[in-house]
Write a protein that binds this DNA or RNA. Structure first.
Length: 587
RNA sequence: CGGGGCGUAGCUCAGCUUGGUAGAGCGCUCGGUUUGGGACCGAGAGGUCGCAGGUUCGAAUCCUGUCGCCCCGACCA
């Protein structure tokens, strides 16, 4: 039976909703696919649900092909497993927390590693049961600081999350590859361009991790890639460390007065004016060592200062810093922090002073000092002399100062060398549409998931987790394929295969339309039939364009002569056909 | 959390500066005309003007507070 528009739960809007800015959100609301319920939370109307189901179908088929079995967990879960894994604390404000009537803490799950692990623990205890891959398609909840862009970043979103269980590292690799391959097939079938990039393993622990990013300037992730094939999220980018240099023959460091040079630029100007280089080249920001004071707040609320030293031509990248110091929260040190450390002279901070080391755990201040990996032994720097209005020139790393370690805190710049030697990288933006992740034994260990191996020995299971954002993908497809008239679904995910319009008031129009609909349905296609009486042609055409079913059949003025039109939504091309041929001429 | 904007009919908005008791277009209902690009005529239904205080004879309009939403940034699958 066709879906008849005369009594379908669908209302198109003539005007753009005022609270929708991005294309996908605007069109999905206007065309009657979704409605906003709360910030970042959406209701799915019948036609929207159909598209969602089409995407899920592709995902399910490829999951089955990869040997994964579907399950379904509740979104509402008790606190305990997340307490044991540490994520009750680590997730912070992004976790939706609530209490039941007895006052027990519960949560709306942001992902399900813990409960999948516990289920397997309940049921399995032998290596013979493994490997195992199970997945679900379920709504996830994250209380984003600022939900935006409609479905692209909501607080409730549908995700396919899969989990693999193995008892050997090689097994985990194989399970990981199977999911990774499935993802490639899924995105290819959906026609979504993607880049696979190295990702940060982050607070989840574990080793190998890759993100599938859809390249788009509006993406939230920045990634790098080299011509030689290296690709990584900037958060996971590692600096190619230069060789250490010898400091034999380098002149001793010298302090010069540098009044009014609180910034890198003023310092460089002052250096070129007052202490020109003997080799004739100008000083640049890259010759200076910038020392940035950061405040880390641990999960227990403790506050620690740390100073990061990096070349003056680079800023600290807060995302990379967050990764480097996770799970602590990072912010710039405030006036109060400086007040507690009079040894830090704002604007003139450096590791060295005439009276001894200023930065570092064993120094006068005792503040942890970490260096950008480029600051290798033997490199010379202009940096603060810890005295107002003074800098020290020719300060040599290794000879004149030491640090407590290195940190990947500096921003990545286009042209930086890829760590694998594959050449300079370029920067691009992308939106995460999938993530594959070797969790390793973190969750299994925390939750006690062990099996007996071939030797009768208890071994901890090793796991992987694999996510795809179903609703985000839907929004991206809508965004990519739409035009100024409305949505234009690719056939693989379209809510219907064919949209039949009956226009006119002669009974022959409706009779013809009915037979056309029946003929098309007989070919196995799904039909949306606009049978609304007393609705003018312009309205029906406009709605068809807005709704975006790929093939439209117009039954109208030619009906009396047995002629209808086939209208391709994407190309706009219209072809007149005899009624009898329509079903067979559909692509 | 910082910055900006906005809350008036189902939707998109005007009215607010200069206080006088609620408007338009679209949508919806009824009658009629119309039917290949968002038709027309006539008659209707529909709003505690986000909420709470205050000023005033009188508040959508002025004042104070508060709640909510959107956008940019921070953050984030």
């Amino acid at each position: 039976m066709p879906t008849r528009l005369s009594n379908y739960f669908l209302r198109t809007l003539r005007e753009d909703p005022s609270d929708a800015e991005v294309t996908s959100h605007r069109l999905l609301v206007r065309a009657g696919y979704i409605r906003r319920q709360a910030p970042g939370v959406f209701a799915w109307l019948p036609i929207g649900l159909r598209v969602k189901a089409k995407i899920e179908k592709v995902v399910r088929e490829e999951m089955a092909a990869a040997g994964a079995h579907e399950v379904h967990f509740p979104a509402l879960l008790p606190r305990e497993p997340y307490e044991v894994s540490g994520r009750w604390a680590e997730y912070g404000d992004a976790l939706f927390r609530l209490q039941d009537r007895k006052g027990s803490d519960m949560l709306l799950a942001p992902t399900h590693e813990e409960v999948f692990t516990l289920l397997v623990k309940d049921l399995y205890n032998s290596y013979k049961d493994l490997p195992l891959s199970i997945y679900q398609i379920q709504d996830k909840y994250r209380d984003e600081a600022r939900p935006r862009a409609g479905l692209l970043r909501g607080r409730e979103f549908t995700m396919k999350d899969a989990y693999s269980f193995d008892y050997t590292d090689a097994g985990l690799d194989a399970s990981y590859e199977a999911q990774r391959d499935a993802y490639e097939r899924i995105f290819t079938r959906l026609g979504l361009e993607y880049v696979i990039v190295k990702a940060d393993a982050g607070a989840m622990g574990g080793s190998r991790s890759e993100e599938f990013l859809h390249p788009t300037p509006v993406g939230e992730d920045t990634f790098v890639r080299s011509a030689g094939g290296y690709a990584a999220n900037v958060e996971a980018f590692t600096t190619l460390v230069p060789e250490a240099l010898s400091w034999d023959g380098l002149p001793p460091a010298q302090v010069f007065p540098t009044p009014d040079t609180p910034t890198i630029q003023t310092l460089v100007d002052s250096a070129n004016r007052n202490q020109p280089r003997p080799d004739g080249r100008d000083w640049t920001a890259a010759d200076t060592l910038k020392n940035v004071v950061l405040a880390l707040t641990g999960l227990d609320g403790s506050r620690e200062l740390v100073v990061v030293g990096l070349p003056g031509d680079r800023d600290v990248d807060l995302k990379r810093v967050e990764v480097a110091f996770a799970p602590a929260e990072v912010e710039a040190a405030n006036d109060e922090d400086f007040a507690k450390h009079p040894g830090l002279v704002k604007g003139y901070i450096g590791p060295w002073s005439a009276d001894g080391a200023v930065l570092g755990e064993t120094s006068a201040t005792g503040i942890r000092y970490l260096l950008d990996p480029r600051v290798v032994d033997g490199t010379e720097w202009i940096t603060g002399a810890n005295e107002h209005g003074h800098h020290v020139y020719g300060l040599v790393a290794g000879r004149d100062f030491q640090a407590d370690g290195t940190v990947e805190a500096a921003e990545v710049l286009a042209g930086d060398p890829a760590p694998d030697g594959s050449g300079p990288v370029e920067l691009a933006r992308g939106m995460e549409i999938g993530h594959v992740f070797q969790l390793g034994r973190k969750y299994a260990e925390a939750l006690g998931l062990k099996v007996l191996d071939e030797n009768g020995k208890l071994v901890t299971v090793t796991m992987g987790s694999y996510g795809i954002g179903v609703t985000r993908i839907l929004a991206i497809i809508a965004e990519l394929t739409s035009d100024e008239k409305g949505l234009v679904w690719p056939p693989a995910v379209a809510p219907f295969d064919v949209h039949v319009i009956a226009t006119g008031r002669d009974q022959v129009v409706f009779d013809t339309a009915e037979s056309v609909v029946a003929a098309i349905e007989a070919t196995g296609r799904e039909v949306l039939y606009d049978d609304r009486p007393k609705v003018s042609p312009g309205v029906k055409f406009g709605d068809a364009e807005l709704i975006g079913v790929p093939q439209i059949v117009i039954v109208g003025r030619g009906a009396a002569d047995g002629v209808v039109e086939l209208w391709d939504r994407r190309t706009g091309e219209r072809t007149s056909l005899p009624v009898a041929e329509v079903a067979s001429r559909l692509p």
